[in-house]
Structures are given as C-alpha cells and as structure tokens.
Design a protein around this nucleic acid. Structure first.
Length: 426
DNA sequence: AATCATACCAACCGCAGCTAC
DNA sequence: GGTAGCTGCGGTTGGTATGAT
C-alpha cells in the first residue's frame, strides 16, 4: 500500500482556508463535481493538496451540512451509537443527517466525553467507572469479566448486525412473504437474516434468539455492585437526566423526521440488568421500592437470577456466547422459540421456513397479543403492563423482558435499516 | 486592561482498505 | 499475487475565541 505524497509537495498551501479559496473550490465542484481529489486542485486553480480540498468540502463547504448546536436528540443518538460502535465517527455520522464525522468527533471530545466522565461514566465502555464505584462489589474479577464481556460482545454484535445485512440481501430477493406486515415491514427482512444466522442449525437444532441488550445488561450488572447512592446514576439516561439534559429519554431516536428515521418507540430509557436482585413487587430490577414506573427513568425486569448467570458465565470462560445471552433471556426465549417454530412448521423449504419463523417471531416477539403479560408496545399507559408510559399503572414483569428485547432489537435493526447510504456501519 | 487558562473546532497527519495495473 | 495510487477514516494539533483572575 503506497503512501500518497500529498501535501508534502513544496508550494502547497496549508492552514485555514480563505474565502477566495472556498469560492474557487465551491465553484469548481458545483460545475464539475469533485471527481478525482488529487487532480482537483490544479483544475480548480488552488494551491492545495487534494486531501485538503476533500476535507474542506466534506467538513465545511458541502451544502447539506447542518451547523450549530447539537440538539438533545442528536446528543443522545451520538452517545448511544458510540456505545454501540465506539469511535467509528463516520458510521455514527451516517445516522446523524447533515452532521459530519469530524463535527461529531469534535463534539464528542469536547462535550459529551467530558460530560460522561464528569458523571462517573467511562466514555469508552459507557458504564460506570470502577473508581466511581469504589471497591463496590469487592470483586475485581467482576470488573474484568465485564470488560471481557464488553469487548467480546462488541465484536459479536457487529458481526451479528453484519449478518443481518448480508442475509437481508441474500433473502429478500427470494422472499416476499416476509414483507407482509404493514407495521414494520423492514424488520421482517432483518429478522429473517438474523434468524437464518442464529437458528438454522444443521439437524434441526434450534438456538434460541439472542438477547441483544448487552450494553444495558452490562450496566445492569454494574448496578448490582454499585452502592445505593450511585444507583440512580446507573442508567445512562438517568445520568443524562441528572445533568443538564432535558429528557431522560435514551431510547434510540432519530432526530430528523425529514429523513424518515423512524422513532422506534415512545418509551423512555430503560436499563435491563441480569444481575440485580430485585425481589420487590415492582420487578424493576431494583431491590427496593422507589424506582417504579412513575420515575422518569424506567427500569426493566431482570431476566435470570444472578447465580444462574454467574454459574453459566464461569462455565463458558467468562464470555457470553449467543447461547449465554439467550439463556439470559431464557424465560421469554423458550416461549419465543416455541412460538416461532410453530409458525415455521408450516413450511417445508428453507427460505419459507425461515420466513415463517420470522413471521412467527415477529408476531410473537413484537406484536404478540397472546402473550399473557404482553406489554403496551408504545408505553402509552393504556395497558396494565405498560412499562413506563405516562400514567401506566402496571410494572414490568415478565413482559418487560419482551419489551426490552424488542426495543433493543428494533434499535439495532433500525440502525441497519435506516442508514441512508446502505450503512457503512456494519 | 492585561495576562493566563480553557474551550472549541478546523485542519492536518498518517494509517489502512480498496482498486487498478 | 504484488505493487502503487487513491480515498476514507480516526487521532491529534494548533489557532482562535471566550472566560477567569
């Protein structure tokens, strides 16, 4: 791979651009397009290297750039995408219309990172800092395990999402049946791919679908070891709410309605923790009585009991496999698989079977009304199991698991699905 | 008013991936 | 298959603006 000499050439100007230079570059690109950046400066009469021209164009002169203060929703999106993708600014920028990767990066480094740090969150891992927790659990192994899990899961999550995309491309051409939902048609395709990946095992062996809410699970795990004074800060949303943000919402939102980014749901932020010892009636993942649904911050059910998970985690070398994650969702997972495969049984060929699985899963997992504890999807308070909707009376029991996984799965799928450019994210 | 510290952000640097030859 | 060129990306720097003392 050869290195380009670029700006090392003598005589090329560096540093801030003058209005005249901007005008030249703008005029040339408007008339001819940028074409080859390397050749552009000479053609445009600029004493700059192509790289500098490209940067000036993409970060400043491009007409579709929005400048100015970041909105609350943009901030939230950046934080959530950063939690998911890390410092992949271009990927993050894909989901923030009219914002450049450079701008987002700068904003992260100068604002958001500091803010998170100030609030005791590690801006790299997006979980409460060990220092902030003090000796907390008193078990350094926990921290190591979680860190290990975080790294592993980050990679796995990306691979999973990539497979979703690939499978979508592969299967959409063969499968129109999976697109018959008026509600969220694209999800069928994505789930189709995902199901093909994690369920289509040789010999008919079925692997339960993954509970993808790993980031939140980490936070939940940390919740367990944090003290009561810091518990209120154990959801990112909670932290945001405690700082200078206006809303605790951290459910993935897309800021610009003009870009057809779907608002996934109207629920406010949630944290699911598989490590909590919630024995209270609210089943909100907190072992107390003051973190209920009336809070601005919603807490969801903690799926398996800690000893089960710990034991399993140890068996698997302190990393989480898909099966482990699914195990974390075991209560809903068994039903989920059963429901999905009852639908699949109606088909004989592979693609249709997978399609039917997805149909079944979609019905079951996302819209199911047969589930005894099905929650109100939009959290509007009308359903007694509404997890956090305004005025909702119910708490998140077993249905919280479905809600939480559904929401997170939606988020991931929509991240993949709504990318304007065929997302370079995955 | 002057000086210093901090915040902000445009721009640069260099690595890595992709593609053409 | 190897090499060179080009482009994109992420980390970092340095100049400017703003605030504090």
């Amino acid at each position: 791979m050869g290195r380009s000499p670029c700006c090392e050439k003598v005589g090329l100007k560096k540093g801030p651009w003058t209005p005249e230079e901007d005008q030249k570059l703008l005029a040339y690109i408007e008339e001819h397009g940028h074409g080859s950046w390397r050749a552009l400066p000479a053609k445009a009469g600029l004493q700059r290297c192509g790289k500098s021209c490209r940067l000036r164009w993409t970060n400043y002169l491009r007409p579709d750039i929005k400048r100015g203060k970041f909105s609350l929703q943009e901030e939230q999106t950046i934080i959530q995408l950063h939690a998911l993708l890390g410092n992949r600014w271009s990927a993050i920028a894909t989901h923030l219309p009219k914002r450049t990767d450079n701008e987002i990066k700068n904003y992260w480094n100068t604002h958001l990172k500091k803010r998170l740090t100030k609030m005791g969150i590690d801006p790299v891992t997006h979980k409460p800092k060990i220092d902030a927790l003090g000796s907390g659990s008193g078990n350094p192994k926990d921290a190591a395990n979680l860190s290990h899990m975080a790294q592993w899961e980050s990679a796995r999550l990306e691979a999973e999402a990539r497979l979703v995309r690939e499978s979508k491309l592969l299967l959409t051409s063969n499968n129109n049946n999976a697109n018959n939902s008026m509600a969220l048609p694209h999800h069928h395709n994505h789930q189709l791919g995902s199901a093909n990946h994690f369920m289509n095992k040789p010999g008919g062996a079925i692997t339960p679908p993954p509970c993808l809410d790993v980031l939140k699970a980490w936070q939940g795990a940390w919740t367990k070891s944090s003290n009561s004074s810091s518990r209120d800060c154990n959801t990112l949303a909670g932290m945001m709410a405690m700082d200078d943000l206006e809303s605790p919402t951290s459910t993935l939102n897309f800021p610009d309605a003009n870009h057809n980014y779907p608002r996934i749901n109207n629920q406010t932020a949630t944290t699911v923790g598989f490590g909590t010892n919630d024995t209270t009636a609210d089943h909100d993942g907190w072992n107390d009585d003051n973190h209920d649904h009336n809070s601005n911050i919603n807490h969801m059910v903690a799926p398996p009991t800690p000893p089960e998970f710990k034991e399993r985690n140890m068996e698997h070398g302190n990393t989480m496999s898909l099966q482990d994650i699914a195990f974390a969702c075991s209560e809903g997972g068994a039903w989920f698989v059963d429901h999905g495969f009852r639908a699949a049984a109606a088909s004989s060929d592979g693609v249709a079977a997978v399609s039917n699985i997805i149909e079944g899963f979609t019905d079951a997992f996302m819209y199911n009304s047969e589930e005894p504890n099905s929650a109100d999807v939009v959290g509007d308070g009308e359903n007694s199991n509404d997890c956090g909707g305004a005025g909702g009376e119910g708490s998140c029991g077993a249905s919280g698991l479905f809600e939480e996984n559904k929401n997170y799965w939606n988020s991931i799928l929509n991240l993949v699905n709504t990318s304007p450019t065929g997302s370079p994210v995955f």
